[in-house]
């Protein structure tokens, strides 16, 4: 499923003292099966952009095409779209509301108007997919641990079987084990279902390791779009925008400053290992 953003503009509180341009002429195309990371400082417009892609926010001008269709056209079925483009908010566990875990996960597919048996099958599959233990299925979601809640919340979106999954800082507040688990889940979803992933993240180390393509937002504009290596080679510009570069890149950069001839292409531990060992 391809998603195209076409000259998106979005103005918050238009016509008041708080008027603020959150998106400024943003255009890009995301192909089927891509693993894209959306980067930028807080307030750079990443979340606003993500909410346009499944029609939660309507652009002030410009539009979004999903599979060639204009989603803001009159009569377009936005509800069906939200089944196809799943959006997981930051701290999704705070949105749990049903009496038990299973019913909560059923909420999404039920809203899509599916048969009951299909709804329950999907909920079951999604809960299995996120690796929740069986005895927790009919517990109150509020009695689960923090990590389990996050799993249930993710299952709630996955049960809609989205073809595109947008994750707004899915690792926020998780410990290293939890973060690793999220990335494993994404890898599995990609491998098994060929899902397209758009990951909003602050961690350069994470995106360097996982994403195929980076989109960098700054002050509402899309300022960079490319492979991780390409983007991170503009480390000076990134730092000027208040963004980090991966720790590994910084080591490589410092080595080069000291006259050691290493390539800035190495952005993960594995790549850096090869690059440095080559010197000996």
């Amino acid at each position: 499923m391809s998603v195209i953003a076409d000259h998106l503009n979005y103005i918050y509180s238009a016509g008041t003292a708080y008027e603020h341009k959150a998106l400024d002429d943003v255009s890009f195309k995301i192909e089927d099966g891509e693993y894209v990371a959306l980067l930028g400082q807080t307030g750079s417009g990443k979340s606003t952009l993500a909410q346009h892609l499944n029609g939660l926010l309507k652009p002030s001008s410009g539009t979004v095409y999903v599979d060639g269709e204009d989603i803001f056209e009159k009569g377009y079925d936005l509800k069906a779209l939200r089944g196809k483009i799943g959006l997981v908010f930051q701290y999704p566990e705070y949105q749990l509301f049903e009496e038990d875990v299973f019913t909560d996960v059923c909420f999404g597919p039920k809203n899509l108007g599916l048969e009951r048996s299909e709804v329950e099958l999907r909920a079951y599959e999604a809960l299995k997919l996120v690796g929740l233990k069986d005895e927790a299925f009919f517990q109150s979601p509020f009695d689960l641990s923090g990590g389990e809640k996050r799993r249930v919340a993710l299952a709630g979106v996955l049960a809609m079987k989205p073809e595109v999954l947008i994750l707004d800082e899915p690792t926020a507040g998780l410990d290293p084990g939890g973060r690793e688990w999220i990335f494993e889940l994404i890898d599995r979803l990609r491998a098994e279902q060929g899902i397209t992933v758009i990951l909003i993240s602050h961690s350069m180390d994470d995106v360097a390791e996982h994403a195929d393509r980076l989109l960098v937002m700054n002050g509402g504009s899309l300022v960079m779009d490319g492979r991780p290596r390409e983007v991170f080679s503009y480390y000076k510009e990134l730092m000027q925008m208040g963004l980090d570069i991966p720790q590994v890149s910084r080591v490589m950069y410092l080595l080069r400053e000291n006259g050691v001839n290493v390539s800035m292409d190495a952005i993960t531990v594995k790549e850096a290992l090869g690059e440095i060992l080559r010197l000996f």
Binding site: Q51, L56, K79, G86, V88, Y94, Q95, G108, G156, M160
Partner: peptide, 13 residues
């Protein structure tokens, strides 16, 4: 606002 959006994203009407 956030909760409304999140539930909309799960198809709530």
């Amino acid at each position: 606002d956030k909760i409304m959006k999140a539930q909309s994203a799960r198809g709530a009407d």
